[in-house]
Design a protein around this nucleic acid. Structure first.
Length: 272
DNA sequence: CAACCGACCTGTTCGC
DNA sequence: TGCGAACAGGTCGGTT
């Protein structure tokens, strides 16, 4: 499940490969991947465009093209971007292929078909009402306290709400709360300023460490780098996917519960 | 505003 | 062994 660290890693890797390259031709294998414009227009308008810059916003990847338009990509659950030679093996999950001017291709595969792409001159129209970037310096502990005011939902739900904060998903929300020593069941507006500051610190530590290790590749290998290499953060997960295993901090057994319709993993001992 | 549900999807795991 | 049910979860839109 690609979250902020995975998309950030992709953006960094793809910058080295794609900046300055031109898209020669686009093949759309699963039209519903293209949210806008219609798939034919999408392919036609992309042909001949040069990739000038690559950014990330929350879990969105943004490719800036000459001519002023942006190609927006959201990987959702199972989307994957690979850069490969023309001789690469077929993949039944391929949804969109971008043929590049160096003979290679950027291939989007997505077994679950949830991933979406948009070609637009105005990305803000498509990013939704995203919350602030967790790693941006202007997100201060004071501002986080302000943001939490009146928020009666449980912390786990709050952290995965993209309107509140952009980029955290199920895995990193669990890891962040463990690092901060806060219960996922805690009501968001009950945090003291000290706890909010601790939470922000944990968010940044976890995300920065995960980015440094190039993201989390689980056994299903749903996320890998553009060249197929795995990210190395999975070995450092403290709670996610570790139900019944010992807490790295206190040794208590990690618990899995259902919060807000999805699984939450936490240590009942150090996250009271 | 909070909580929940279904829809979108398919590969994998689980229980009988 | 084989089958269908349940599960995995990001996001949106709808209902209670």
């Amino acid at each position: 499940m690609p979250e902020l660290p995975e998309v950030e890693t992709l953006a960094r890797e793809l910058r080295d490969i794609l900046i300055g390259r031109s898209i020669v031709r686009v093949g759309v294998c699963w039209p519903r991947t293209i949210a806008a414009p219609d798939p034919e227009t999408f392919a036609r308008r992309l042909a001949g465009r040069r990739i000038q810059e690559i950014r990330r916003r929350g879990k969105w990847l943004l490719l800036g093209l000459d001519g002023g338009e942006w190609l927006l990509v959201h990987l959702r659950m199972s989307g994957r971007l690979a850069v490969e030679g023309a001789d690469a093996p077929e993949d039944i999950h391929t949804r969109v292929v971008f043929h590049l001017d160096d003979g290679r291709r950027l291939r989007f595969s997505d077994p679950r078909k949830f991933g979406r792409m948009v070609l637009t001159a105005c990305p803000e129209d498509w990013l939704g009402d995203l919350g602030p970037e967790p790693l941006a310096p202007d997100l201060t502990p004071e501002r986080l306290v302000e943001m939490l005011r009146g928020r009666r939902v449980r912390l786990k739900v709050q952290l995965t709400d993209q309107h509140f904060l952009a980029g955290l998903g199920n895995i990193y929300a669990d890891e962040v709360l463990w690092r901060a020593g806060l219960s996922p069941l805690r009501r968001a507006d009950t945090l003291t300023p000290e706890e909010a500051a601790r939470l922000l610190g944990a968010i940044r530590e976890v995300l920065e460490e995960a980015i440094a290790r190039q993201g989390t590749t689980l056994a299903d290998r749903r996320y890998v780098l553009p060249d197929g290499r795995p990210g190395e953060f999975a070995a450092h997960l403290a709670v996610y996917g570790r139900e019944g295993a010992p807490c790295p901090r206190c040794g208590a057994s990690i618990v899995r519960a259902r919060i807000g319709g999805r699984s939450a993993h936490f240590c009942p001992q150090c996250q009271q």
